[in-house]
Write a protein that binds this DNA or RNA. Sequence first.
RNA 1: CGGGGCGUAGCGCAGUUUGGUAGCGCACCACGCUGGGGGUGUGGUGGUCACAGGUUCAAAUCCUGUCGUCCCGACCA
Length: 571
Amino acid sequence: MRTSQYLIATLKETPSDAEVVSHQLMLRAGMIRKLASGLYTWLPMGLRVLRKVETIIREEMDRAGAMELLMPAVQPAELWQESGRWEQYGPELLRVKDRHNREFCIGPTHEEVITDLVRNELHSYKQLPCNLYQIQTKFRDEIRPRFGLMRGREFLMKDAYSFHIDQDCLEDTYQKMYQTYCRIFDRLGLDYRPVLADTGSIGGASSHEFHVLAESGEDAIAFSNESDYAANVEMAEAIAPSAPRPAATQPMTEVATPDTKSIEQVSQFLDKPPQQLLKTLIVLGEADDEAEPELVALVLRGDHQLNEIKAAKLPGVASPLELATDQQIQKTVGCQPGYIGPVNLKIKTYVDHSAANVADFICGANKDEIHLSGVNWDRDCSFDAAADLRQVEAGDPSPDGNGTLDIKRGIEVGHIFQLGNKYSNALNATVLDNTGRAAVMEMGCYGIGVSRVAAAEVEQNHDENGITWPEALAPFKVVLIPLNMHKSEMVSDATEKLYSQLQDAGIEVLMDDRKERPGVKFADMELIGIPHAVVIGDRSLKEGNLEYRSRKDGSSQSIAIDEMFAFLQGL
RNA sequence: CGGGGCGUAGCGCAGUUUGGUAGCGCACCACGCUGGGGGUGUGGUGGUCACAGGUUCAAAUCCUGUCGUCCCGACCA
């Protein structure tokens, strides 16, 4: 490709609405352009990268025995009504009507479509397991698209669905997909971790997320420093303290605490560490149809944070978790939030393991402007159950018993689930088993955010001059940078010769034949991130050399004209 | 949806407080010089100042409403 005939859409300045590096650099390198919030055009230079990500994924999925197919992006409402998600999914599902006033949605995922296909096409357990995938554009009307490609509304996704006669078979494929994902992310050159994940709204038994480690990640991941344990903090279990609770040493007394509601304020006002305080949060219980929902109290140590996912799973607690309003609290507890405590609290009370282990604690008195100090469990108050309610923190013991936890940020680029029979049941997807009876198939599903991978890749591979693509993803492998080409015949001859040699050898080469000054060419090609550059100028040519430059480490070396082609081929 | 910011040329911004008929840098076009790190000179092109309504002799500027967009929290590959 010659740059004079290619769209080099580089930007000198960073557009003001781009926050994260990947967004800024992909915009500046002329790889993407925004059309509307969460919608991006892939320019030619960017598309080359996206296609390479696709190719790696496709090769590994095929190698694992999965079969590629392509399903429609637009899906009929009936299927979603059949699975029950037409109601469940909410505003994230973009719904449209056709000219006959029939309802459709733009697919955010394809469980319904694939299950419908498979129930019609597969009839016998002998046809299982069956693993089908596609690489396709999805649409999710995100509440808040952000960070460029990282959370777009329209995005490219590889989604695979596997079908099985039983759980054992599902587990085999799940393991295989786990390994396939590791191969894919290895080949993509990413620093990633598979982590235990919450199965979320999709439902099902087991689940792993694949996270690319990056400061800009939207998720927090907990790692053991000694074993390979890793889990999304939403999931990571906080181990109950093993030491017995210390004995009570203080009498319970009321303390006036005017206008001190937060843990921080109380801690300062009474000069006690937050670990000595307990905070009580009031949330809604499971609603019985029309009836006013009961309230439930959650008690945590002052220095701990509530984990909403864990709390929502407790019996009797509304899911998703919802905090009670000030009015509800006033009515049931009799005070403002900030002065609530477990003493004489008449509602169901869950206490975090750590909070249950504190003696002589301070908590709200359920009266405005008053706290209690020297409070002790059993003697002064009680709770219904101790549970794991809190977010794990760096330094906590690892749930697998090995080492302590460290917390880092990650970008979720892949997710594998054991779905079980949620969809196959709803859509009645059965095959005959070896006894001739209809059996509902077990399902697995496996996603990779293809466009998000491209962005994550930039997050991990950049420097002050631009993107530093790994070889496997770079839009071109080599760029030729002739200097003063339009005046020096020597330069243009050498450039054209090397260019056609490389092209004939099938090496992806870009030749920067623009009539630009050297600085402009160097800057643009570094921004775009082509791994290998050959600088061709009179100066080195006269000595019989060309200059090779590596994008990654910035090093350069002189190589004899005749040897350059072989050198590049050998890279 | 709640909280905050921003909409002026392709990009980055000034001008808005105190109304007077739109400007700077980069980019772009033409020509010249220059030619190994975003060079330079001369001359140009490009704006419904987000939109609608109002106040006024006069509105980018004041008032009202609407829309878009970005950031912080509830969704997920």
